[in-house]
Nucleic acid binder design. Structure first.
Lengths: 303, 303
DNA sequence: AAGCGTATTTGTCCAGGACAAATAGACGAA
DNA sequence: TTCGTCTATTTGTCCTGGACAAATACGCTT
């Protein structure tokens, strides 16, 4: 496996792979006849473990070079310290994934939405399911393609529900909400769940999709006459970059636009002109508060 | 703008940016106090033009270093040589994008699906619209976020329609089709349109999502008991890699599984054990032929 | 005109050095 | 104790310039 392939597969940049090798003696790839690195499959697997640990906050110097057993031990400890009681729904989902039963998986997800409602699904159950699947993957109980499969079905079900919710009921219009992620953030699931929450509150929601450059987000906010910019940050997003990006966005976007950030990114903190949401369930009351806030000054007209 | 930002924004790897600078004298970035490259916005814009031209088949040595006017001229020539008569629907879509009217855009797309049917939408109209939007972007008439916006709404509408089609009518079951793209291919639109075509034929379709490693695709095919692997390649996918990847997949996947490849990738050619589809409309008859083929030998049981 | 071998172009990789950004640890003040 | 500030260490990213393989164009032959 070439260094470029490992970069794609493990998400570790080439420069990092080379500098780890120089500093810690691992990875220790073979060389082909032209002195290019060839990574054996087992080292790639170890690198994947390392990636998880580093994302979780371990320092490379402390973990790179240790044996697979030790690393797995550390990962297990992380998993149990994340006290994620696996509900019966999650258990069912994992079973279906293990059996590769995509059709039934979608039926089950649709059934959960119908029974619990879109709000509870997006705010509580969905994140729980996604967390359980991610944890199972990190324990090696699922293959990547099974995680892909879950993401696909989940996205599909959620999108349909949002579409339906948008048609039903009289939308109240304001606030107009724009959804997006920063360029380093390719995960769409969190964004989609937030979109569901806003849609349920009768907001007009417009998604820019993932990985939109910050100046573009600001330009879009201006062009759409948006009231709120909703940004999503997954747990692997580098916190300092999130804060820098938010400051940049705050400077570029119109002053009247509010910036609401959310997601599992650990270092995400409120900042001047930016609200931070730890829970998706906090969106509904916040929208209510926004409406009360802009209605009161009576200075804003409906364009 | 740092070299990493340009890499993200233009899709040109850092190594390539540096080597172009060394060989052709362009780009010619400023340096910050620590000698790191700082790309001015206008050079980044030129790099985006260059990227389009190189993707379209121009050789870097012939175009890097030329003036913006010359480059725009070459791009225009490309656009007219792509004889894409813009239909009234595409015109309407571009107008709505220019006005940032996401809500009406979705309504219009939904209306087209209802009027023309999902089949015509996925096979003909959809690719036409996507092509028109891409061309408008390359002419500088649209911003990136407007292209994102289109992709989002298009995806949403198409997914809903697929979901509806899946529920309606008695699915005939076989063939079981698995959808996916190779790791270097992040575009989901082509895959989604193919999924629509197969779903209309009553196939059981399962999507692995984009960027699945080749061994994972093969493993999934085995696990799902798939009959057909459907791969999508966009116009920017490097053709040699597509052919190498298909050969690798052919070697890893079960012999009984057929591999069907499609998309706008120019160098995509049929190969032993792999079919290539130039048009999405060719899928429907091909599924019919598949059914006739496997029904005849009568050696396969329904598991 | 189509197939094949050679020349040129072009992207990716390498080494090893450098330093800024991020983090941990020590220290002092409320 | 708990919080903020300052310093030391760690860590990722960028640098240069050289090398070569893979991809492409070109010229030759059939």
């Amino acid at each position: 496996m070439s260094i470029a392939a490992v970069e794609r597969d493990c998400g570790l940049p080439k420069d990092t792979l080379r500098v780890w090798e120089r500093r810690y003696g691992f990875p220790n790839p073979l060389r082909d006849r032209h002195d290019e690195r060839l990574y054996p499959a087992d080292q790639v697997a170890t690198l994947r473990l390392l990636r998880r640990l580093v994302d979780a906050g371990h320092r490379p110097g402390k973990v790179v070079g240790r044996s697979d057993e030790e690393l797995s031990g550390l990962l297990r400890r992380l998993d149990v310290s994340t006290p994620q009681a696996i509900g019966s729904e999650a258990q069912q989902v994992l079973t279906l994934l293990a059996a590769y039963d995509a059709v039934r998986l979608r039926e089950v997800l649709n059934a959960i939405v119908l029974r619990a409602g879109l709000g509870a699904f997006a705010a509580t159950i969905g994140p729980g399911l996604a967390g359980a699947v991610g944890a199972a993957w990190s324990r090696g109980e699922l293959e990547i393609h099974q995680e892909h499969l879950f993401t696909e079905q989940f996205t599909s079900v959620l999108r349909s529900a949002i579409n339906a919710a948008q048609g039903a009921g009289a939308p109240r219009g304001r606030p107009r909400v724009l959804f997006g992620t920063f360029p380093q953030e390719p995960h769409a699931l969190g964004l989609l769940m937030a979109e569901a929450m806003f849609t349920l509150e009768g907001c007009i929601g417009i998604s820019l999709g993932v990985q939109t450059p910050i100046p573009e987000i600001a330009a879009a906010a201006r062009a759409h006459g948006a009231d709120i910019l909703a940004l999503s940050f997954s747990s692997t997003f580098p916190a300092p970059q999130a804060m820098t990006g938010l400051a940049e966005l705050r400077a570029l976007a119109p002053e009247t636009v509010e910036i609401w950030a959310g997601g599992a990114c650990p270092g995400l903190r409120p900042k001047a002109g930016c609200l931070v949401f730890r829970e998706l369930s906090a969106i509904a009351p916040a929208v209510g508060a926004w409406r009360a806030r802009v209605a009161e000054p009576a200075s804003e007209a409906h364009p």
